[in-house]
């Protein structure tokens, strides 16, 4: 019988890499503590919406959670850094290394103040643009209605492009695209594939322009309440699940990419290097908006990550 039972909540279906990472975490932790720590996983928003679960981790109603950065940002605004377009490298392994490197400790200061501990940042495959009009240059976004998450930085990014960002609930996006309520959206290949968005979109542009990141964090008191050796195991293991998560992530992303490419009626193109440079130039002010929203501590986080990347 386990001495400590921890509840881990997340908001993804069981075939998403988040869940596989959670399973691996539970397995390794149980193994390394001889079954003293048991992790009970609740996928699929069983325990509530992401923002609600974030609050539950703070209050100790649940022990830990893996939640999208945009929702964790309702508690720790600095986390919005992961939603800035064209900031992090397009290679996901590189991205994972940088975001979980020494800079994570700077970010964790902001978590600690809110009664939670940041364990790891699990990146998902980069996002692509999808639409019913071909998109080659930033100007192609002018006047288009693009569905985005209700995250201020993403909304601002699309405003800079001259598009009209429309926040729509993830589950309603398919219908919204089908009925033409919005013209396009952005997501990684696996989400475009799993949610069948490609059935109702003509063009997909491989832009790798931004990331969805899952934030893995834990109730602070519960972590510090553990014996020192177990605490170390939890922190270390949270990092060691990264390779498994990335492998699963890339596999499902690749599978869906192939499925989408094989689908008649969907054209997949690659964003040219010139266009990328143009996008970067136009979206540069997003960084300033981030600093305005996340304050001095946000600035510190951004500078630390930029330093890491220039190494």
């Amino acid at each position: 019988k386990a001495k400590h039972t921890f509840t881990l909540g997340h908001t993804e279906p069981t075939n998403v890499s988040t869940h596989l990472a959670a399973l691996k975490f539970a397995e390794l932790i149980s193994e390394r503590t001889n079954g003293d720590i048991e992790i009970v996983i609740h996928p699929n928003s069983e325990l509530g919406a992401a923002a609600d679960q974030a609050q539950m981790v703070q209050s100790g109603a649940i022990s830990m959670a893996m939640l999208p950065a945009g929702h964790v940002a309702t508690i720790v605004p600095e986390v919005q850094i992961f939603t800035i377009p064209f900031l992090f490298p397009g290679d996901i392994h590189e991205m994972a290394r940088i975001v979980n490197g020494p800079a994570i400790n700077v970010l964790n200061k902001d978590f600690s103040e809110k009664d939670i501990e940041l364990l790891a940042v699990l990146p998902h495959a980069p996002k692509q643009f999808t639409s019913n009009k071909p998109i080659n240059v930033p100007a192609d976004f002018k006047g288009q209605k693009i569905r985005t998450m209700a995250s201020p930085l993403i909304v601002e990014s699309y405003k800079l492009l001259g598009a009209t960002p429309v926040p729509i609930n993830y589950h309603e996006v398919y219908t919204a695209l089908q009925l033409g309520t919005v013209d396009g959206e952005e997501n990684p290949f696996w989400a475009i594939g799993e949610m069948k968005f490609y059935e109702v979109q003509k063009y997909i542009v491989e832009s790798n322009h931004a990331y969805l990141a899952t934030i893995f964090f834990m109730n602070k008191a519960m972590l510090s309440g553990l014996p020192a050796d177990y605490r170390d195991i939890v922190i270390k293991t949270a990092h060691e699940i990264l390779p498994y998560q990335l492998e699963a992530e890339l596999k499902i992303d690749k599978e869906n990419e192939e499925k989408i490419r094989a689908h008649k009626g969907t054209t997949v193109t690659v964003l040219s290097a010139d266009a990328v440079a143009e996008f970067k130039a136009i979206m540069k002010p997003v960084k300033d908006i981030y600093i305005k929203m996340a304050g001095d501590s946000g600035k510190e986080v951004l500078e630390t990550y930029e330093r890491e990347m220039s190494k």
Partner: peptide, 9 residues
């Protein structure tokens, strides 16, 4: 709704 002018909600 069917023309996409507005969502069901």
């Amino acid at each position: 709704i069917y023309s996409g002018t507005f969502s069901p909600t």
